[in-house]
C-alpha cells in the first residue's frame, strides 16, 4: 500500500497528444496485452450474469469438489457451486471495489493535494496527515474500520480508499507545486483569475496525466487489498463471491481441491499484472521525454 510510483514529471502534455499517447501505448506489446486483458475482464465482470453458466450460489450436492471439466470449466467447490460462475462474479466485485476505492480516494485526495500544493499554510497540515496515514499499517486501519462499521463491501471500499489516499494526495500536491510556478499560471493571475479558477482551469487539467497514471497503479493495489481484506473476513462476506473470499474458503480444502484456490489466485495475478503493464505503458506514453523520440 505504501508504494509510491516514480513519476516522470511530465512537463505538460496537451490533450491532442493524449489520443496519440493511447496509440503509443498500443505500440508497446506488453501494455497492449495488458489493455486487452483489462478490457476482457471488465466486459466479463460487467456481463457476469449473462456469461456465467450457472447462478453463482447454485448448490449441487451431486457434483461437489469436481476438478475442472467440460461441464464445470473451473471445477466446483465443496457445495457443488460452479467455480467459473463464481470467478466471474468475483471479478465483478474486485473491479467494483478496486475502481470505486480509487475513485473515492481521487475525490477526496485530489482536492486535498491541490490545496496542499497551492497554499503554503495548509501544506504542513495536509502533508502531516498524509505521512500519518502512510505510517499507519493499512491492515490495522482496515481492521479498525471493519470493527466499527462491520465487514462489508462498503467497509472494504472505504478502508482501501483511505489506504490509497496518500498516493493520490502526494501526486496531486507535487503536480500543483510544479504547475503553480508555470508561466501560464502567472499569466492567468495577471489576467485577474482568482484562486479557484487557477486550480480548476489551469492546474487540475494539467495534472490529469500524472493522476491518470497514478490511478492505474492504484487500482491493482486496491484489488489485491480487497482480496486480502476478504480473505481475512473483513471485506465481502460469503456467499457473495469475491476472489479473496474464494481463496479463503478454499484453504481447508487445498489437498482435495487445489483448483479452488489456484484459479481465483491466478485470476488476481493476471488482472493486477495486466493493470500494471497498462499503467506502465501509459506512463511511458505520456512522458514528454518519450514524445521527442
Amino acid at each position: 500500500m505504501t508504494t509510491v510510483v516514480e513519476l516522470p514529471t511530465p512537463t505538460v502534455v496537451a490533450p491532442r497528444s493524449r489520443r496519440r499517447a493511447l496509440r503509443r501505448v498500443l505500440r508497446n506489446p506488453l501494455a497492449a496485452a495488458g489493455l486487452v486483458v483489462v478490457v476482457v475482464v471488465l466486459a466479463a465482470a460487467a456481463l457476469a450474469d449473462l456469461l456465467a453458466p450457472y447462478p453463482f450460489d447454485l448448490v449441487d450436492f451431486d457434483a461437489t469438489l469436481q476438478p475442472p471439466s467440460l461441464a464445470h470449466w473451473f471445477g466446483t467447490d465443496e457445495l457443488g457451486r460452479d467455480q467459473l460462475s463464481r470467478v466471474l462474479h468475483g471479478l465483478r466485485v474486485s473491479m467494483i471495489v478496486g475502481v470505486m476505492s480509487v475513485v473515492l480516494s481521487l475525490v477526496v485526495g485530489v482536492p486535498l493535494g491541490l490545496l496542499a500544493g497551492f497554499y503554503r499554510l495548509l501544506d504542513p497540515v495536509i502533508s502531516r496527515l498524509t505521512d500519518t496515514l502512510l505510517a499507519f499499517p493499512f491492515l490495522v486501519l482496515a481492521v479498525g474500520l471493519a470493527a466499527i462499521l462491520g465487514p462489508s463491501l462498503t467497509t472494504a471500499t472505504v478502508a482501501l480508499a483511505v489506504g490509497l489516499l496518500p498516493l493520490i494526495i502526494r501526486v496531486a500536491r507535487s503536480e500543483t507545486l510544479r504547475l503553480r510556478e508555470m508561466d501560464f499560471v502567472a499569466a492567468a493571475v495577471a489576467d485577474g483569475a482568482d484562486d479557484l479558477e487557477l486550480l480548476r482551469r489551469h492546474i487540475l487539467p494539467n495534472a490529469v496525466n500524472a493522476l491518470l497514471v497514478q490511478a492505474t497503479v492504484a487500482v491493482p493495489l486496491a484489488i489485491i487489498g480487497e482480496a486480502i481484506l476478504s480473505f481475512l473476513g473483513l471485506g465481502v462476506r460469503p456467499p457473495i463471491p469475491s476472489l479473496g473470499v474464494m481463496i479463503a474458503s478454499a484453504q481447508p480444502l487445498f489437498r482435495d481441491g487445489p483448483w479452488l484456490a489456484v484459479i481465483p489466485g491466478v485470476a488476481i495475478v493476471v488482472l493486477t499484472l495486466a493493470l500494471n503493464l497498462f499503467g506502465d505503458g501509459l506512463r511511458d506514453a505520456l512522458d514528454p521525454r518519450e514524445l521527442r523520440r
Binding site: 496537451a14 495577471a190 487539467p205 494539467n206
Partner: peptide, 16 residues
C-alpha cells in the same frame, strides 16, 4: 491593466 509577458511558449495553458 492587462499584461503580456516575455515567454509566449509557456504563457498559454497547454490543455485549453
Amino acid at each position: 491593466i492587462a499584461y503580456v509577458f516575455q515567454e509566449p511558449m509557456t504563457s498559454l495553458n497547454p490543455v485549453l
